[in-house]
Amino acid sequence: ETQAGIKEEIRRQEFLLNSLHRDLQGGIKDLSKEERLWEVQRILTALKRKLR
């Protein structure tokens, strides 16, 4: 995994995270989306740690 590859994956995950946040802010309670949001946040945290 290169730095560029990790950064690209971070961009993808952040896009997905923002999309999930928008969907959930629409007021629709969706447990699967909430679980996915937490999963994406965990992935992002792990990726950012790899960059250090």
Rank of each mutant, 00 (worst) to 15 (best):
T45H: 11
E8K: 09
L24P: 03
E14I: 13
A4N: 07
S32T: 09
R49D: 12
R36V: 07
L51S: 01
N18Y: 12
H21T: 14
Q13H: 14
L51H: 01
E35T: 08
K33V: 13
I10V: 02
E8G: 04
I6L: 12
K33M: 11
K48C: 08
L20Y: 02
A46W: 09
W38R: 14
R22F: 07
E8H: 04
Q3H: 11
W38P: 01
Q3S: 07
L37P: 00
K48V: 05
I10N: 01
L20F: 02
L16V: 06
Q25W: 06
R22A: 12
Q41S: 07
A46E: 14
E35Y: 12
I10F: 01
K50C: 13
L31D: 10
R42H: 04
L20R: 00
L17H: 02
T2E: 11
A46C: 14
D30K: 02
Q41D: 03
T45G: 06
L31S: 12
S19W: 10
A46H: 07
G5S: 12
K33F: 10
T2L: 08
L51D: 01
I6D: 01
A4C: 10
R42C: 09
R12V: 05
L37C: 08
Q3C: 15
L31K: 13
G26K: 09
L17E: 05
K33R: 09
L16Y: 06
L37N: 01
K7H: 08
E1D: 12
V40L: 07
K7A: 11
R52N: 10
R22Q: 10
I28C: 10
L44N: 00
E14Q: 10
K7C: 15
R36Q: 13
L16C: 10
L47K: 00
E39L: 04
K33Q: 07
K50A: 10
K50V: 06
S19K: 11
I10T: 01
A46N: 06
F15Q: 14
S19H: 05
I43L: 13
Q41E: 10
T45D: 13
A46L: 08
E34H: 08
R12L: 13
L47A: 00
S32F: 11
G26F: 09
F15L: 14
D30I: 03
A46Q: 09
F15P: 01
L51G: 00
K50Q: 13
L17A: 05
L47D: 00
I28D: 11
I28S: 09
D30C: 03
L47Q: 00
E34M: 15
H21P: 01
E39Y: 03
D23I: 07
L31N: 10
R52T: 11
K29E: 06
G27R: 02
R52G: 08
R12D: 03
G5Y: 14
K29M: 08
T2V: 09
R11I: 07
L31A: 14
G27N: 08
G5F: 14
A4T: 06
L20C: 09
S32W: 11
R42N: 06
L16N: 02
L51Y: 03
L16G: 00
R52H: 12
E9F: 05
D23W: 08
L20Q: 00
K33C: 06
E34Y: 15
Q13C: 15
D30Y: 02
E39V: 06
T45F: 08
R22I: 07
L31Y: 09
F15M: 15
E39T: 04
L20H: 01
G27K: 03
R49L: 10
E9I: 03
R42I: 05
Q3T: 12
Q3I: 15
L24A: 04
L44R: 00
R42V: 05
L16W: 04
R52D: 11
W38V: 12
K48D: 01
S32M: 12
S19E: 14
I43H: 06
I6V: 03
S19G: 05
E39W: 06
A46R: 07
D23M: 09
K29Y: 13
L37Q: 02
A4I: 12
R52I: 13
L24R: 02
R22E: 08
K48F: 08
L37D: 00
G5L: 14
A4V: 08
F15Y: 10
N18F: 10
K29A: 10
K48P: 00
G26P: 06
L17P: 01
E39N: 04
I43M: 07
I10Y: 02
Q25C: 15
L17W: 11
W38L: 14
L20V: 01
T45E: 14
L17F: 08
K29H: 12
L31F: 09
R12I: 07
H21D: 04
E8T: 03
A4Y: 08
E9G: 02
D23N: 04
I28P: 11
L44I: 13
L20G: 00
F15G: 09
E1M: 11
R36L: 13
L37A: 04
G27H: 06
Q13D: 02
R42A: 08
E35S: 09
L31G: 07
E34S: 09
G26S: 14
L17G: 01
S32Q: 14
K33W: 12
R22M: 10
Q41A: 07
R11F: 04
I6G: 00
R12W: 05
E34N: 06
Q41N: 05
N18P: 00
S19D: 07
K7M: 15
E35C: 13
I10S: 01
L44E: 00
L16A: 02
S32L: 13
E9Y: 04
R52V: 11
F15A: 15
E35Q: 13
H21K: 15
K29V: 11
Q3K: 10
L44C: 02
T2R: 08
W38Q: 12
R22K: 12
I28M: 08
D30M: 03
K33H: 07
F15T: 13
E39K: 06
K7T: 05
E34P: 02
E9H: 12
I10H: 00
L24G: 02
E35H: 11
L20I: 07
E8A: 14
K48L: 11
L24I: 07
R49G: 04
E1K: 07
I28K: 09
R49K: 11
S19M: 14
V40H: 03
L31H: 12
I6K: 01
K50S: 07
G5Q: 15
G26Q: 09
G5R: 15
E39S: 03
G5N: 10
G5H: 12
G26D: 11
H21R: 15
L37I: 14
D23G: 05
A46G: 05
E1P: 06
V40W: 02
L31C: 11
I10P: 00
L20A: 01
R11G: 03
I10L: 02
K7V: 10
E39A: 06
E34T: 11
W38E: 10
D30T: 03
Q13T: 12
E9K: 05
I6N: 01
V40S: 02
R42S: 06
T2A: 12
S19V: 10
S32N: 12
E8N: 06
T2S: 08
K29W: 15
R22V: 08
V40Q: 02
I10E: 01
K50G: 02
I6T: 02
I6S: 01
K50W: 04
L47S: 00
L47F: 02
A4L: 08
T2K: 07
F15V: 13
H21N: 08
R22N: 09
K50P: 00
G26H: 09
E8F: 03
R12Y: 08
N18V: 12
E1V: 09
L20E: 00
H21G: 04
N18E: 15
